[in-house]
Write a protein that binds this DNA or RNA. Structure first.
Lengths: 154, 154
DNA sequence: AGGCCTAAGTTCCTTAACGGAACGCACCGT
DNA sequence: ACGGTGCGTTCCGTTAAGGAACTTAGGCCT
């Protein structure tokens, strides 16, 4: 959705940004996560222009992040719900949110709190190594080309 | 860096996007993470316009994600290195990358592989609950207003 | 039946950001 | 003195965002 096309970069970050990297999309997904599904509700919650919202919703549906779902036959009305792909993407929003809480919230404290229904505790997201379970920090990671690395730009 | 200012939304996702939500910034941070620090190297690696790169680097320095660091006195030359704040932000790029590997890589496989130097294994990032350690899924999380929630839009 | 309401978009217009190419400038080595 | 390197600026054409008004389609009320 931006001017330069990231979709053919051999980088999963770039490809993710291609799908949801334009600034409104993560907020739309966040809304979807907390139960906002309808056009007008998104528009009111975000203050986004209706034109841009239409474009974003269409794009997210095309890319299988949201699905258009009829919630009324007469009159014909539909809303937008997260797909499994979109729900997994919304999980990473918690990681983003945790960083924002830590570095941008200031004295006022976090704007939102998260309760993990599974354990019942107020919590936040941590990024951990899938192999050893330790916190994963970029300085402890070595990046090497993978099988899909052909046109690697860097 | 976009038209609508996200910085005063009471949402840590919006505030994070305000700092690094414009599409090039995450890629610049990714580059910084793998050791690309100089202007021309960023420019060549990304194919970004020099003008926009200048703006992004300045913005990321202003927001304490990168710091300008002299690597030569004569001639006066500087490059851009991640601050601790920026390094923590780069950690969430692994979570984004994991999603991209899973949903956008296709048959070719992941463009990049990550080895966790701490445990020595090829790995990927997981998002886990800081309290119970289980995988954190958005559908298991209940969102409630926090202390800094005054002008909550939604 | 007429008029108003809601939901979900379109259309039109202005303004800001991007993208690309060219240019600038300080220093360096030869 | 001359070309090369590193790091930007400047200029200019194109595209996307923002905002407000308008549209369409059906339902509800009286």
């Amino acid at each position: 959705m931006q001017r330069t096309d990231f979709s053919d970069m051999a980088c999963s970050i770039a490809r993710t940004l291609h799908i949801a990297g334009e600034p409104w999309s993560p907020l739309i997904i966040r809304n979807a996560m907390v139960g906002i599904t309808r056009f007008d509700d998104h528009q009111r919650a975000l203050g986004i222009s209706r034109k841009v919202l239409t474009q974003r919703l269409d794009w997210l549906v095309e890319n299988d992040i949201l699905e258009r779902r009829a919630y009324s036959e007469h009159p014909p009305r539909h809303d937008y719900a997260l797909t499994p792909k979109g729900r997994e993407l919304s999980d990473v929003l918690f990681a983003i949110s945790a960083w924002g809480d830590r570095w941008t919230a200031g004295d006022a404290g976090a704007p939102a709190l998260f309760r993990h229904k599974t354990c019942g505790e107020l919590t936040h997201a941590e990024i951990r190594c899938a192999e050893c379970g330790e916190l994963l920090h970029s300085q402890d990671v070595e990046v090497t080309p993978g099988p899909g690395a052909e046109p690697l730009p860097a």
